[in-house]
Design a protein around this nucleic acid. Structure first.
Lengths: 146, 146
DNA sequence: CTGGATCCGACATGATACTG
DNA sequence: CAGTATCATGTCGGATCCAG
């Protein structure tokens, strides 16, 4: 199983050698625990991001989520949901009926993250134009230089 | 080359089939442009996240960045920086000296993103304990059900 | 020092088939 | 419907060599 055992050992070896002397705005990576690196990676994951974004304050069924996040495979949706559930961000409710009915919703913890993620999404919405422009400019200059 | 051409064609096919009827909190993925999906993936990237986080309001050299983001390979740092530069988030300054000296800093656009990313990092810092606890609980219950 | 190019393995992800 | 298991593979990312 590709559980959340620990895939990247190198993440915790020396983690990040931040050493500002006094002002250390990013002590999180070297001290605290390298956990932050790992959690960031999980939370900033492509699919997790979308799942959390979609579960605003609604309960969605598996298939509903799958339809909304067009392009996600059943497998990845399952895996993502499992991870989010394990991290206490998403609550999974199974109704013992036939056919099966499973609903997903954000936990209180997940809702606090939703806010942050939402702001990331909003940022992207607002600045996609600038980014597109920057890319064009970059690519133009690039092809110009050969 | 693994440029930012377009790796996931499926991303833009139907993108996300959001269809709430009236209240559509996530129109971004289906309308606007699927760009959002792609940009989100880029800015939420593991290394990009850390790079932007580290370039708070300082200029860092290539090697400095590499040292701070312990665990990143030269290749990925280069790739990440190129992408960020192309997206207009990071400014690259080359000093025509020998040995070469290259410094990186956030652009104004990058600085706006920094704020958002910083809040994501902060969230992770603040809630890593809860997540760890949730994982323990989950794993315990899991092994219990065996 | 800063990178570009290449090679290659590992892991993540998709596709498919099967189950309760 | 909601997964699980298995297999195939594409991509990411590390290691290495080379160049300005």
């Amino acid at each position: 199983m590709e559980e959340g055992t620990l895939k990247s050992p190198s993440n915790c070896a020396g983690t990040v050698g931040v050493d500002y002397g006094d002002t250390d705005p990013f002590q999180w990576d070297s001290r605290e625990d390298c956990q932050v690196r790992q959690i960031l990676d999980r939370v900033a994951d492509k699919w997790s991001l979308l799942v959390i974004a979609l579960l605003d304050n609604r309960r969605l069924r598996f298939t509903e989520l799958r339809r909304e996040i067009d392009g996600i495979s059943q497998r990845m949706l399952t895996v993502s949901l499992r991870q989010l559930e394990r991290d206490g961000l998403v609550k999974r409710t199974v109704y013992p009926v036939v056919p099966p009915r499973v609903e997903y919703e954000l936990t209180p913890l997940g809702r606090t993250l939703h806010t942050t993620i939402r702001s990331l999404v909003t940022w992207t919405e607002e600045h996609q134009g600038e980014i597109a422009a920057a890319r064009q400019a970059y690519d133009a200059a690039e092809s110009g230089r050969g």
